[in-house]
Structures are given as C-alpha cells and as structure tokens.
Design a protein around this nucleic acid. Structure first.
Lengths: 216, 216
DNA sequence: GGAAACATACCGAACGGTTGGTATGGACGT
DNA sequence: ACGTCCATACCAACCGTTCGGTATGTTTCC
C-alpha cells in the first residue's frame, strides 16, 4: 500500500517514476546497456529509492514488463476501434490503430517487451517469461474477434485464430526491427500494410484452401 | 591486406575465431551483455589478440555484421532452391528453406544482425548501419524473383517487389522474437506458414485489388 | 647467403572508470 | 516510537582499453 510522496506532490511516487523511466530508457538503449544509475537519473531518484522498491535490476525488468502489460492493456481496451460492432471491423480497426501509433522516434513506438525478449531471453528467464506473457496475452485479446469473424463468414481454415493473432504480433515486432534499422517508419508501415492485405485476402476468400506450394 | 598466418595452419586465425565467437555468443547473450573477455574465452585467444584485430568493441560489432553478411550470402546463394527454374518456385523455395533452418536452440537459428539492430540502434550507429545493410541487402536478393513472378503471372499490384521482400524479413525477424519468448520453434514456424499463405494468395489472384478495408 | 631492419600476430598484466549492490541514517506520517 | 520511504556514502567486482613485451615471418642490402 505505497502512499504517494507528499513532499513532491506534483510527481508520482518513486516506484512509478522508475518504471516509466525504465520504459523509456530501455526502449532507447536496451536492458543490458541501461545502468541502474541511468534509471535513477531519468526518474530523478537515488539508488536508495531504486533498491528500496526493487530487489535487483532483474526484478525491475520483470516489474517493467508487468507495468507495460497493464498500461498497454488499458490503452488498447479504451481505443475507439473497440466500439465497432462487426468483429472483422474491430480486427482491421486494430491494425489501423497500430499503424496510427507508429509515429515519432522508434524509442517511442516500439515494444518494450519485444526488445527485452530479444535481449535477455537466455540470460534472464524471469524477464523473458514476463515479456512472453505480455506478448501472448496481448495476442490473445485478438482471438475472439478473429474467431467471430471466421464464424460470421463461414471460413474453414487450416489456421487457428490463435496462430493468426500471434502472426500479427510477429509482423509488428519485425516491422519495429526494420524501423530501427533505417531510423524511419516507412518500412514498418509498409509491412503492416502487407499484414492488412493478408487479412483482407483471408477474409474475402469464402473457403481457405490448402497451400498449393506446400512442400509435402 | 592481411595474409593468412602460416605458423598455425591447423586453426583459423584469431580474427576469424573471434568473429565466429561473436556470432555465437552475441546471439545468445546480446551485444551489450557480451564482454570482451567472454569473446576471448570463446575464441580461445587473449585480450591482446582482440585489440590487435579490432580497435574497439564497437568495431568488432561492425566486423561481425559484415562477416554475417558474407557467410549468409554464400549460404543462401548455394542453397538448392536457387537452382529451380520458375521464379515463383524459387520464392517459395526460399520460404521453405527458411523454415527448414529453424531448428535447435534460438541462439542457433535467429539472426545476428536483427538482434544487434534491436539492441544498439540508438547507441552504436556504426553497428546499426552495418546491420541495416545486411538485412536490406539480403531482402534485395529476393526482389528479382518476385518481380519476375509478378511479370509471369501478369500481376498488377499496389505493392512493390521491394516492399514484399522487406515484409518477408519482417515476418522472419518477428518470428524469431516469438521463438525467443517461448523457447520453442512452433510459433515461429506458424508465422512463416502465414507468410507462405500470404504469398500463395498474392500470386494466385490474377489481379491484386485495392484494400476494401482501407481506412481512407 | 646471411644478417640487419622491419612488420605482423599475439600475449597478459595492469589501469581507471563504471557496475550492481549494500550499509546506515534520517525525514515523514501514524 | 515505529515502520515506510528515500538519500548519502561506500564497496568489491567487472568493464573496455592500454601497453610493454615476445615470437615469427618478410624485406632489404651487402
């Protein structure tokens, strides 16, 4: 039950400020290259505050992933496209929304948990698990709409709503890497457009056939 | 013009061994978390050798990206699918080949330059540029086949061969992140299957129409 | 042909700075 | 008075980097 600091009433408490600093700094520099001092400086607190709230740097990484999950969940749950009636419209609304928030610097629109996963999957299993839960939890929110859209159009496919939902995340994560490589957003947006076109093709075909180029 | 070391003909020279160690260790631990000592230990050389061949750790990162470009270029150029006659068969052969090499531990099948890009794009521009050249250079090798396949089937599209080629890389990079998150390969393979299905749909439609769900 | 002069490849101890983490004490609300 | 919250001071380990040194060619000139 952490009470808000009273002597700095205009800013949030140290823990939240550290989590926000982690969100911003780690997206820009990566987890390993971000020092505890970096985070304290960005949050405007001292090391005493840091290790009061987090046992280790790894624990902060886990907490940052959890914080990311909370904030992004609320962000998408309240997005306008969620109010659309048709499930397929909501699915395309999601993709359009993702496109719309690809703006500014890569550090501002890329995914914290995707970045951390890539970096620490081998050395910090606790962080990796928190990131995986975030990514796949977010993907799971798309499944009901996909399933409903399939049912509404009578689509019998050799893919599952879950696999398509995860595929959207793969495309987004990959698009972020392209954006980081170039420093621009055009390549990322192009790739999301390809995803949009794929969804269009999937849901305009009355019956999804087997892949004629299947290697088997 | 470094000539090959003559007095130790049985092992590769220290430089190559360090580059191979970098390829393996950085894929497993990331660039920032990999120390120079780690690399020297893995390569079986001393720090003296390291800094004899590379001015800084960053310079090794650039060289490792260049080495990755060289070795993977040769690897794909000699792959069996390259011998197929039909351009579209080569394109699907490429995707199948990518699927086939997703095997073992993520550290063994994921992309060094994608990992490094994600991590150092902000702090080490020199490494980022070398990685970007590798990714987009590899993507460019797909463009001729895509363009030829489009021409052969009379496809008029609102996308370019270059954008589709880059999209394949985005899907692969994103698939690698999913694989790292779970520790398994199934999710990565699923996503590449979605890519394959997308290509099938694109090249089975006689004329690619505008996107009915376009937000405009 | 042979030795001097130079170049290349590598070793390993040491350095200054930074790292994640700790020990301790004080301000504050209850 | 007491626990929570945070600041200051500090530490040992580790970091990337430097550098004096050795071993082994290669080139040059007599």
């Amino acid at each position: 039950m952490p009470r808000p600091a009273k002597h700095h009433p205009e800013r949030g408490d140290a823990r939240t400020r550290l989590l926000e600093a982690a969100r911003d700094v780690i997206r820009a520099k990566g987890f390993a290259a971000t020092s505890v001092d970096d985070l304290c400086k960005a949050a405007g607190v001292t090391k005493g505050a840091f290790f009061h709230h987090f046992e280790t740097k790894e624990a902060l990484g886990v907490a940052a992933a959890a914080y990311w999950t909370e904030t992004t969940s609320a962000f998408f749950a309240n997005a306008p496209y969620r109010k659309l009636d048709d499930p397929l419209d909501r699915l395309f609304g999601y993709v359009e929304f993702r496109k719309a928030i690809i703006d500014g610097d890569p550090a501002e629109f890329t995914c914290l948990v995707g970045t951390m996963t890539q970096e620490v999957y081998g050395s910090h299993p606790a962080i990796r698990d928190a990131c995986a839960a975030s990514i796949f939890g977010h993907a799971a929110t798309l499944e009901p709409d996909i399933a409903a859209a399939m049912a509404a159009r009578g689509i019998e496919a050799d893919w599952t709503p879950a696999s398509l939902a995860r595929h959207t995340q793969a495309v987004l994560q990959g698009a972020f890497i392209l954006a980081k490589a170039t420093g621009g957003r055009a390549e990322a947006l192009d790739s999301v457009d390809h995803l949009k076109r794929y969804l269009t093709l999937l849901f305009s075909t009355p019956r999804s056939k087997g892949n004629p180029h299947d290697g088997s």
